[in-house]
Simulated assay, not measured.
Amino acid sequence: MDIEATSLPEVIKITPARFGDNRGYFSELYREDLFGARINDVHFVQDNQSLSWQLGTVRGLHFQHPPFGQGKLVRVVTGAIFDVAVDIRIDSPTFGQWAGAHLSADNGAQLWIPEGFAHGFMTLQPNTIINYKVTASYSALHEGGILWNDPDIGIDWPFTQQQVQISSRDSMQPRLHETFVRPLTEVGVDS
């Protein structure tokens, strides 16, 4: 298993080993003891799967407020995505920064996104299926979102706004500064 930190040290790209022959391959995708010892000691409570039919489909940026904040372990079953995490921890020195990774069925890579980060992705192939484990159950009362193309975050998405497929809900999400307000002393303004 190859473990690689992204530009946000808590967001980890994991590429499980594949053992192949003329029949195909075998890969151990997740092992609780190894994940806990090498990445994060968490307990997953739910598995989710989504299918996106069209190239350039955007889902996100989504998160859940405490006490239902979710850590996510994301992988692609079929197709490919550009997967993104945004730090939404107000007291973090990397607040508002993002990290991204290309995940595909071909490369087998996964992305660990801990609680305190918003998550979103853009499909790089049609008929893409992703699967992700989460550390807290879904709660509609605690869900939140940030605009996928918020210029204050500046995510370098592979496709432009004119090329994407997005739900009306995700296209209307608030910007980061409308969702999370940092105290003035933290952003360099004297009180």
Score class of each variant (00 low, 15 high):
residue 63 F to H: 02
residue 9 P to F: 03
residue 26 F to R: 09
residue 28 E to Y: 10
residue 65 H to G: 01
residue 4 E to M: 08
residue 72 K to H: 11
residue 48 N to I: 02
residue 80 A to E: 06
residue 165 Q to T: 09
residue 119 H to W: 06
residue 123 T to Q: 14
residue 35 F to P: 00
residue 57 T to N: 07
residue 151 P to A: 15
residue 183 P to E: 12
residue 52 S to M: 07
residue 136 A to L: 04
residue 138 Y to R: 01
residue 18 R to W: 05
residue 186 E to R: 10
residue 90 I to Q: 06
residue 165 Q to L: 07
residue 96 G to L: 05
residue 76 V to M: 04
residue 181 V to M: 14
residue 187 V to Y: 14
residue 10 E to C: 08
residue 111 L to W: 05
residue 154 G to M: 13
residue 176 L to M: 09
residue 82 F to C: 03
residue 126 P to V: 11
residue 77 V to K: 00
residue 153 I to W: 07
residue 50 S to Y: 03
residue 93 P to D: 15
residue 95 F to S: 00
residue 71 G to C: 06
residue 187 V to I: 14
residue 89 R to Y: 01
residue 18 R to L: 08
residue 111 L to Q: 06
residue 2 D to G: 04
residue 134 V to I: 14
residue 44 F to L: 00
residue 141 L to G: 13
residue 157 W to S: 08
residue 19 F to Q: 05
residue 31 R to D: 12
residue 162 Q to K: 13
residue 158 P to M: 12
residue 67 P to D: 14
residue 180 F to C: 06
residue 187 V to L: 11
residue 159 F to W: 15
residue 138 Y to S: 04
residue 21 D to P: 03
residue 8 L to M: 10
residue 13 K to A: 07
residue 47 D to G: 06
residue 60 G to H: 03
residue 13 K to T: 01
residue 43 H to K: 11
residue 169 R to F: 14
residue 58 V to Y: 02
residue 88 I to C: 11
residue 132 Y to P: 00
residue 42 V to T: 10
residue 67 P to C: 13
residue 71 G to A: 14
residue 53 W to G: 00
residue 122 M to H: 08
residue 30 Y to N: 15
residue 40 N to H: 11
residue 131 N to A: 06
residue 107 N to Y: 13
residue 35 F to L: 09
residue 1 M to E: 15
residue 148 W to E: 03
residue 129 I to C: 12
residue 183 P to A: 14
residue 13 K to V: 07
residue 122 M to E: 12
residue 140 A to E: 02
residue 139 S to T: 01
residue 112 W to Y: 15
residue 4 E to V: 07
residue 108 G to E: 13
residue 91 D to G: 14
residue 49 Q to L: 06
residue 115 E to A: 15
residue 28 E to L: 12
residue 29 L to K: 07
residue 24 G to Y: 04
residue 153 I to H: 05
residue 51 L to M: 09
residue 111 L to A: 03
residue 3 I to H: 08
residue 70 Q to M: 05
residue 36 G to H: 15
residue 5 A to T: 14
residue 67 P to Q: 13
residue 72 K to G: 05
residue 182 R to P: 04
residue 189 V to M: 09
residue 44 F to W: 00
residue 32 E to V: 05
